[in-house]
Design a protein around this nucleic acid. Structure first.
Length: 168
DNA sequence: GCCAACGTTGGC
DNA sequence: GCCAACGTTGGC
């Protein structure tokens, strides 16, 4: 099956791209997604090997795309934080028999050579249809068209050769 | 910290 | 099923 492309948002103050790089195996589970649309993308469309643009939100002047990560889990699986009453992500209405919230694991893949800011993305005509630049777009997991994906990677300084070597 | 835009909840 | 109220996201 062909690869899908995504954009995942994270606040660098909470869990940034560098934090993923420091994780064991450079892999971490992506807990805390509490939006049905994002959950459905993980459940229905995400597959191991898919590639995501890692995007830093809520980061002042540093808002933007910083690198790439790949889906490391075979498929989506229950997010354990929904069952933990002490967690911010606790959901009393979810049950272990029928978990409401899912997550996948992501593996750090490659850093862009430079930050591609949201401002730049918005100023790029080729990306005008990309979800992340649309006004009021809050989805934390977004599908990305391949043409947009490749274009953002190039803006981040990755050459075609490097992308090929990364099996993107 | 402000606030516009958005998603969810729940009364009716 | 409508929609007002509320809580959250995220750019600025």
């Amino acid at each position: 099956m062909a690869k899908n492309y995504w954009l995942i948002k994270s606040e660098p103050d909470v869990f940034g791209f560098d934090d993923l790089a420091k994780c064991k195996g450079q892999t971490e589970h992506w807990d805390g997604i509490r939006n049905y649309q994002a959950r459905n993308f993980m459940r229905d469309s995400m597959q191991k090997g898919d590639i995501a643009i890692f995007y830093h939100s809520n980061a002042g002047p540093k808002v933007g795309a910083v690198g790439l990560a790949s889906v490391a889990s075979e498929k989506a699986y229950p997010d354990h934080t929904q069952f933990d009453p002490k967690s911010n992500y606790y959901d009393a209405k979810s049950s272990k028999d029928n978990p409401r919230w899912l997550m996948v694991s992501f593996k750090w893949k490659a850093a862009f050579k430079r930050l591609v800011t949201l401002k730049e993305l918005k100023e790029t005509a080729e990306l005008e249809d990309m979800l992340v630049v649309q006004r009021g777009q809050r989805l934390s997991i977004q599908p990305v068209e391949k043409r947009h994906f490749t274009y953002v990677c190039k803006m981040g300084g990755l050459t075609a050769k490097e992308l090929k070597a990364l099996e993107v």
